[in-house]
Amino acid sequence: MPGLKLSHIVSGVIAVLVGYTSSVAIIFQAIGVLNLSQAEANSWMLVLGLGMGLSTLILTLRYRMPILTAWSTPGAALLVISLNGVSLPEAIGAFLLCGTLLTLTGVTGWFEKISHLIPDAIGSAMLAGILFRFGLGVFSSMEGNLPLVAVMCVTYLAGRRWFARFAIPAVLLVGTLFCAATGAFTTGASFDFTLAKPVFTWPQFTLSALIGIALPLYVVTMSSQNMPGVVTMKAAGYRLPVSAALTVTGLTTLILAPFGGYAFNLAAITAAICAGPEADENPATRWKGAAVAGGLYCIVGLLGAAVISLFLIAPKALVVTIAGLALLNTIAGALSSALAGAAHREAALVTFMTTVSGISFLSIGAPVWALLFGGVTALVLRPKRVTG
């Protein structure tokens, strides 16, 4: 890509690092519930990586926006508790139905119409709430690994003061070197760097699996993943082609479901990394960071489960701190936008606090309840029209 910068490469690497380390353990749990063979497990990791990478590349290169996709993390958590007693063919049948529903959501366009009704202040407040725990993670990590976090924070401050464009790359480099010098990386892991192969499973459709797995998987993916993903892009100043993006992720799910690609959706947190100012000062060229992430997702997917272990040897404090520092500017910008206007300030505050609370009712996550509570607050407190 012409004009590729170091910041694009670093933001793409951080996005992939955060994307895998934050939820790959949940995927392994779901694989364990189904008692998959090693070949089947490798197939899952292959198509999950390729699905994210290819759909990200398709959307990013087509629309020149930092549109990242992801596997459904809450969907994986749902599978861990709902796959007991379910055979792999039944699970594949449920994944196919979920992919069909996701595709229809994109084709019909109803979700995009709803997303345009969200006030900018409420959307920014929700984004700030979603990312807030990553900012807090920088400080909570000090309790378990103060030397590492302190070195990274000092590097960040020095970078922001003297070499702002390279602050985050410097933090990542210094943190990695510190871990290598102190022996903080977990060693002793064995790696088999061979290309993973897809394993096809014929689907079996049963009413219990369709109702107990497919429908909840669709609902949780739409509410806890796609909605925050749309709001993240909107808060970053991009007019996301919502329907087209959902159609692509839905079709990706349909195509890859028989091989273990249970659900794909718009990303929020990793998208914020590539859509923020740390990725590029120019919003028009930030898509290159997302393209880097898409390429890396494909590479990691092709190498199967072997490379995943590389993400697990790094100290948690390293991943949490680099993610939090990379998102600080995005969090600050979202909070500033959310509270700037007096008209929606209280509604934005309600949205922010609800998101941070992490509440969940009826299998619907905090971000959706935050939009609901914030929207109701905005409607009730909207200024009265002066008549006469």
Rank of each mutant, 00 (worst) to 15 (best):
A306L: 08
L381D: 11
A167E: 08
L195D: 02
S360V: 07
T252D: 09
L372P: 03
P258D: 00
A189Q: 01
G295A: 07
A236W: 07
F191A: 00
V368M: 15
G289N: 15
L131H: 09
H8K: 05
S141L: 06
T206A: 00
I255V: 11
K384I: 13
R239C: 09
V350E: 13
S124W: 05
A209P: 01
P277N: 02
N329L: 10
G175A: 05
F95P: 02
I114R: 09
G301E: 10
T182I: 01
S208C: 02
N35V: 06
T221K: 12
L79R: 10
S357K: 08
E346H: 13
A334K: 10
W287R: 09
G341Q: 12
L88Q: 04
A334S: 15
V24D: 15
T252R: 00
T249G: 10
L240D: 04
S190L: 06
T252C: 10
W202Q: 01
Q204G: 00
Y63M: 07
L325C: 07
V376M: 12
F191S: 01
E346D: 10
S37R: 04
P241K: 15
G250R: 03
N226W: 12
S72K: 14
G260W: 00
I168T: 02
G93T: 10
R62F: 14
T387R: 15
L256R: 03
L78A: 07
T253R: 02
T60Y: 01
G106I: 01
F264A: 03
F185Y: 10
L296G: 11
A25C: 05
P203K: 01
S72M: 11
L303D: 06
R165N: 15
P383N: 11
A30L: 11
P383I: 13
A326L: 09
G123I: 01
S223P: 10
I299Q: 07
S72Y: 05
G51D: 00
M65F: 07
T351L: 14
L96C: 07
L79H: 13
A305L: 08
M233W: 09
L327H: 06
L57Y: 13
L57P: 05
C98G: 08
L54E: 00
I58K: 05
V219M: 13
S124V: 06
W110P: 14
V320T: 12
F193M: 02
A317K: 09
F163I: 13
V219Q: 15
G175T: 14
S208T: 00
T155R: 10
M353A: 11
I130W: 12
G19M: 05
K288I: 00
M353F: 07
A263R: 00
L54H: 01
G3A: 15
A77V: 14
A293D: 04
V231P: 03
L177E: 02
G374L: 04
L266P: 02
L254K: 04
S124K: 06
Y262G: 01
V171N: 05
A338C: 15
V18P: 05
L381M: 12
N145Y: 08
F139Y: 11
G19H: 05
L173V: 13
M45I: 04
V320Y: 12
Y20S: 07
A317D: 14
R62Y: 08
G32W: 07
D192M: 01
N226R: 09
L246I: 01
E112S: 14
A15K: 12
A332P: 09
G75E: 04
L59C: 05
